[in-house]
Design a protein around this nucleic acid. Structure first.
Lengths: 260, 260
DNA sequence: ACGCATTTGCTACAAAATGCAACATTTCGG
DNA sequence: CCGAAATGTTGCATTTTGTAGCAAATGCGT
């Protein structure tokens, strides 16, 4: 019974049952608990599955509904967003794109931050909703970018939106891509979000990437921001365990690890 | 039975029943009361639900003020919106401003209408959300107008938004003012909404006013559209009883009374 | 309004399950 | 046989869960 064989069978079990317990694997393979644990760790780092206490479950897919995605790794994302606050100063203008992490960032910004007079420019309806104020005097102003609206996430997109972005300039862009990799930088799956993020990165003085540990070392179809142009990468503590982390750590100008 | 699994199922129960009692979870999962309590505490901290004595309920996402207003005279408003469908034809472009009635109109349009290939241009995030599609091929396209965002209702407003409107031309504008009066026409309270509505009325071939009976004969601060320029007024059956109704009936070019 | 019983929420602690790291053992190719 | 990789074992830390006791809230009958 080799690793390869076990991995394959674990994947099969995961596919058919939606979950596997360590005990179950131990029983059916006749190997030790520790070995199974090591298998699962490897498979998790390969992005094949996600470990939970007592077993493992399938990794979340990107075509999942936004409402589901936003509840996943919520603790880590919140920690990341709180840590990202130190990148901001009062009276700054901020680009934010549409994603589950930036949505949580909006929630954080809507709370007490010590920052005043921020202007957020976004194509995300979720972000806009959370930051909208009745009193534009204090707190956060939101500027919504125009364009056709699509769902998952709720955002405006397309040429009109991109053109709109180019009419602004921000101090910092907060982006939540699908993956971050040392070689390819920030990557997106959909072209919609990618061209938005690209424009935002260009039209801002600094670019910060918000990525939870599941995104470290992950690559997708569309490269948006090469590693050299990432001014700051904000990750959660679990990112240290990811295989792609050391390379990223050296590649980016600044790294913030949010300790939960 | 892992946390993970329980949390998921609790969410499912919450979604389908609108509430869950601790006892019910205890029974169906076979875990202790304390464990359920701890689950709910975690989920509450994650913002997934709100704990109440004896169980939990879904967290209220909607803004209180607006969600209250939107449920008032819901029956009548829905009837008005269904009646307003006869004003629309396939392949038309439609302006919609931000209000409780247009939000319901969006819900109606999101359902089966027999109309295809509509384009809706709006400054209302509520309308945009309800009409957003993943597949822009069929159904309704939504174009969101840019600008700063405010709440109650959630909308973009201001010079940028108005300028954006003037870059479009629609077949019909569906407006939901605060009041309609024979002498003053459609009137708004806030200047925000008023200048939006005014621009929409100008940039569209026809202008339709959606008003429930509570708005008949009511006037407010800002006149937007004189009676002569109202191409169609859509009201509910109870409007006939209002004192301002006969005058309006004569003043507008066309009147549609939605019989519940 | 009052007292009383019941339900529910909370804290503390113990037991069990699980995760983790260090080290020992086995396996396998050269 | 040697060395490296894989696997097993052990011991301990951490997390999760259950139990019990008590406080607070609720409901109920008077």
């Amino acid at each position: 019974m080799w690793q390869e064989e076990r991995h394959q069978k674990i994947r099969a079990m995961l596919a058919s049952f939606g979950q596997v317990s360590i005990d179950r694997i131990v029983e059916s393979f006749g190997v030790s608990r520790q070995t199974v644990r090591r298998d699962l760790i490897e498979m998790e780092q390969s992005g094949i599955l996600r470990r939970v206490r007592g077993g493992a479950v399938p990794v979340e897919t990107e075509d999942m509904e936004f409402s589901v995605r936003i509840t996943q790794r919520l603790q880590e994302k919140r920690a990341i967003c709180v840590a990202a606050l130190q990148l901001l100063k009062s009276q700054q203008t901020i680009f934010m794109d549409a994603g589950s992490t930036t949505t949580i960032m909006a929630e954080v910004l809507a709370g007490p931050t010590g920052l005043t007079d921020l202007t957020v420019i976004t194509n995300s309806l979720e972000v806009a909703m959370r930051l909208a104020q009745n009193t534009p005097e204090n707190g956060v102003r939101v500027q919504l970018l125009r364009g056709p609206v699509r769902r998952d996430p709720l955002e405006t997109w397309g040429g009109a939106t991109v053109a709109d972005i180019y009419s602004y300039h921000a101090d910092i862009a907060l982006l939540s891509p699908l993956g971050v990799d040392a070689a390819l930088g920030a990557t997106y799956h959909h072209l919609y979000g990618a061209e938005i993020a690209e424009a935002m990165a260009r039209q801002s003085t600094k670019t910060a990437i918000l990525a939870d540990h599941a995104k470290i070392g992950v690559t997708s179809r569309k490269c948006v921001c090469p590693t050299a142009e990432i001014d700051c990468l904000v990750v959660d503590a679990k990112a240290r365990a990811r295989s792609g982390f050391p390379a990223l750590e050296n590649a980016v100008a600044r790294l913030i690890v949010a300790e939960n």
